[in-house]
Design a binder for these strands. Structure first.
Lengths: 140, 140
DNA sequence: CTATCTGCAAATGTTTTGCATGTCC
DNA sequence: GGACATGCAAAACATTTGCAGATAG
């Protein structure tokens, strides 16, 4: 059995088609979609699924650590199957959200540790700027 | 005249008691309050002020660069009269939000620049952990 | 005097909740 | 069969908007 299904069972949660579909969608995209986006993308395969189910499922998946919730500052959350709390790069031109390397993160954390007494647990890091394509558009 | 008042006028905006009160409150606290918190704190001095006015004022102050909006990931925004996009340190124990130095920020940005083609404009950086006081409580 | 603000109430958009029905195991 | 999930509609929030009356300049 797949580990996601196994993990759900182990927590006393049921393995439903909706849960697997949402998790797979997140695992197969680099887009960091919102609940609404996920709902629309799955509408053709699951015409009867409600938005409430998407939210409830995202909550469950988040709680068992299979996905993470991102807050880029847009008024709605985005979701990511990469659960490392890695830094994100948000393009102010086209709105896309990319990932930065785990190795970069380690260097950032080291720098912060030098300057604080806090015991660091996690972080949410968003860098905003213009991607190469949008830079080109702007200079035209 | 104070520079805040001057800046408002220069932008064709009016200098009202509500605007000054909200700005002063933000300047005299390190708490990074939410709109709701600001509203309650000013209720005694401005009993007739509405929450909508707080929001509209925060929007105005943000637009002219006198304050910044923070999104710590709580479902509501916090506001800060320190307009450097400096990193924040959030205590998971007591919920307080502290600032990290501008100098730390420069080092963090340098590190990210090494690893991306994006033209960086700003950033929102939140590190979560336990402050010294909360660490002590936990170890008891 | 007139453009801009304020305060109220209603609207909006996202997310959550309650509950009856359906489904996994 | 029984616990847990789903789907619907309604509720709950934070935030925004429209507009009539108030106020700054």
């Amino acid at each position: 059995m797949e580990e996601a299904a196994a993990l759900l069972k182990q927590k006393g949660l049921k393995v439903t088609p909706q849960r697997l579909a949402i998790l797979n969608l997140l695992r197969n995209t680099k887009e960091h979609p919102t609940a609404e986006t996920i709902y629309k993308k799955l509408a053709s395969d699951f015409p009867t699924m409600s938005l409430a189910t998407v939210y409830k499922t995202l909550e469950v998946l988040k709680n068992i650590g299979l996905i993470q919730e991102l807050n880029v500052g847009e008024g709605s959350f985005r979701y990511d199957a990469n659960t490392n709390s890695h830094p994100h790069l948000v393009c102010l031109g086209c709105g896309k959200v990319e990932d930065l390397d785990e190795s970069v993160l380690q260097n950032l954390i080291e720098e912060v540790k030098k300057h604080t007494d806090y015991k660091l647990v996690e972080q949410k890091l968003y860098f905003y700027g213009y991607c190469p394509a949008c830079q080109k558009k702007l200079s035209n």
